[in-house]
């Protein structure tokens, strides 16, 4: 029996040394046994590597940044949809999620299905809200404070012991050992991501993550824990390994049950030497290392697409422990004609 054909639009094709999740998500979709995915890549920049990966991205379009106004973005999506008949859209970048969540109903009316967290779920897990989130759901979190100006830096030592982490609201995190370094990183981060900038207690331990999928009714459809084995200077995992860690899975299940999380998520935790877990971040989307979960037996992108289409999805019950990923860089060869076509016509 031939597989159902689906046109799936994907963002986050920036498969760089700070990779977006687009390409790993596509790899999972291409391996689906339930459907045949035709991938419509949506790119913000014309040098996002995924655009040129013709074995993975069947057609690529340039789209405007959400910061240029959601109306512009939606108009562009309507144009693309008219040509490509998109079945499912998977946005993969933190900074665009708000716009897509706000437009979810409009997208649905157009016939484009999504499977995103609710606005409330998205807002309450913001880094700046982590202390109240931890309190509400009974999760151990590091002390943190959101600051919007330099005035607060001098008195940080009343609340925190140095070093502290200085974090952007979407991306970036730096370890600062004194107020001068906090001020330097504050300037760097606020110039790029705006305010607030988050000051967070530094918890010493091993960085462990879980990629998970919630069905929006409190059920955990998928959950795979991983330890970063090699971390780049940008704090990104360059290698990781799946773990047999029941506590991490249980923490994830509890959180998904309590929040009735809908969609993909990544829980970032620190495991201390006395085996306590601190939640340091909750990312409201599939992470860039999701292909490790696919390889370990949980095809999370495929399950997400099925749920977006209202299909019944049974929770995964197992995964392989000791599966590893190792990133690598690779020079794709393109041609100026491709670059020209994308730059002039906005598609490739």
């Amino acid at each position: 029996m031939s597989k159902r054909k689906l046109n799936i639009a994907i963002t986050g094709l920036n498969n760089t040394d700070n990779p977006g999740p687009g390409i790993p998500v596509i790899r999972g979709l291409k391996e689906s046994e339930a459907f045949e995915a035709r991938i419509i890549g949506l790119a913000y920049e014309n040098l996002e590597p995924g655009i040129y990966m013709k074995d993975l991205v069947d057609k690529a379009y340039q789209i405007p940044y959400p910061s240029s106004g959601s109306q512009n973005l939606m108009q562009r999506l309507e144009q693309i949809h008219a040509r490509e008949s998109i079945d499912v859209l998977i946005p993969n970048l933190d900074a665009e999620l708000y716009t897509f969540m706000m437009s979810a109903r409009k997208l649905e009316e157009m016939g484009i299905h999504t499977f995103l967290p609710t606005l409330e779920q998205f807002e309450e897990r913001h880094k700046a809200n982590l202390p109240s989130y931890g309190e509400k759901y009974g999760i151990r979190v590091p002390a943190s404070m959101a600051i919007i100006g330099h005035e607060a830096i001098a008195s940080l030592s009343d609340e925190f012991e140095y070093p502290v982490l200085v974090k952007g609201k979407f991306y970036d995190a730096y370890l600062a050992y004194n107020p001068e370094q906090v001020a330097m990183y504050y300037n760097k981060i606020s110039a790029k991501w705006g305010v607030p900038v988050i000051i967070q207690e530094f918890i010493k331990g091993t960085e462990v993550n879980v990629v998970a999928l919630g069905d929006g009714k409190g059920n955990t459809i998928a959950a795979v824990p991983m330890r970063k084995q090699y971390i780049t200077d940008k704090g990104k995992a360059w290698s990781g390994i799946t773990l047999a860690d029941g506590q991490m899975i249980e923490l994830t299940r509890q959180l998904i049950t309590q929040t009735r999380w809908r969609g993909g998520m990544e829980l970032e935790m620190i495991k201390t030497s006395d085996e306590k877990y601190y939640m340091i971040e909750i990312n409201p989307r599939i992470p860039a290392w999701v292909y490790l979960a696919v390889a370990a037996g949980q095809n999370i992108p495929e399950a997400l697409v099925k749920m977006a289409l209202g299909m019944d999805v049974q929770p995964f019950s197992t995964y392989q422990v000791g599966k590893m990923f190792i990133r690598y860089s690779y020079d794709l060869i393109g041609d100026i004609k491709q670059f020209e076509k994308l730059s002039i016509q906005g598609e490739l």
Binding site: T206, M226, R227, I241, L243, A244, D245, G322
Partner: peptide
């Protein structure tokens, strides 16, 4: 057999 030891809990 080779002496390689793996702790699946910690990786």
């Amino acid at each position: 057999e080779s002496g390689f030891v793996f702790n699946p809990g910690s990786g």
